[in-house]
Amino acid sequence: MGDLRALANIRKRLRMLYGEPYGLTICSTPGAGTVATIYIPFDPIPPKGGSDVV
């Protein structure tokens, strides 16, 4: 049960930090496995040297 609270806390913190469309989802299929996906915004930082290739 503690693990579920920890994951819920992570989801809540991500949403507080980045907003409603972001967070954490976990999908589990018995016998197949579990997929955890973290949604955070992408903000590219241009490399040093002035190139626009990221």
Rank of each mutant, 00 (worst) to 15 (best):
M1G: 12
G2S: 14
G2A: 15
D3A: 06
D3Q: 10
L4P: 00
R5V: 04
R5E: 14
R5L: 09
A6H: 10
A6T: 09
A6L: 10
A6S: 12
L7H: 03
L7Q: 11
L7Y: 08
L7N: 04
L7G: 01
A8C: 04
I10C: 03
R11W: 00
R11S: 06
R11D: 12
R11A: 12
R11K: 15
K12F: 05
K12L: 11
K12C: 02
R13G: 01
R13K: 14
R13T: 13
L14I: 01
R15I: 00
R15C: 00
R15N: 04
M16P: 00
L17V: 02
L17E: 15
L17I: 04
Y18A: 04
Y18F: 15
G19Y: 06
G19S: 06
E20N: 11
P21K: 10
P21E: 12
Y22E: 09
Y22V: 02
Y22R: 03
Y22L: 05
G23Y: 08
L24W: 10
L24M: 12
L24H: 08
T25W: 02
T25M: 10
T25N: 11
I26F: 03
C27M: 11
C27D: 14
C27Y: 09
C27F: 10
S28K: 13
S28R: 12
S28D: 08
P30F: 09
P30N: 12
G31T: 07
G31K: 15
G31E: 07
A32N: 14
A32Q: 15
A32F: 09
G33T: 06
G33F: 05
G33M: 05
T34V: 08
V35R: 15
V35M: 11
V35I: 15
A36H: 05
A36E: 09
T37K: 07
T37D: 08
I38E: 03
Y39S: 11
Y39L: 11
I40D: 02
I40L: 07
I40Q: 13
I40C: 04
P41E: 13
P41S: 14
F42P: 00
F42W: 10
F42Y: 15
D43W: 03
D43S: 05
P44Y: 01
P44I: 03
I45M: 04
I45N: 08
I45H: 09
P46D: 07
P46E: 11
P47S: 05
K48G: 00
G49N: 06
G49L: 07
G50P: 00
S51L: 04
S51W: 02
S51G: 06
D52Q: 05
D52K: 10
D52M: 02
V53P: 00
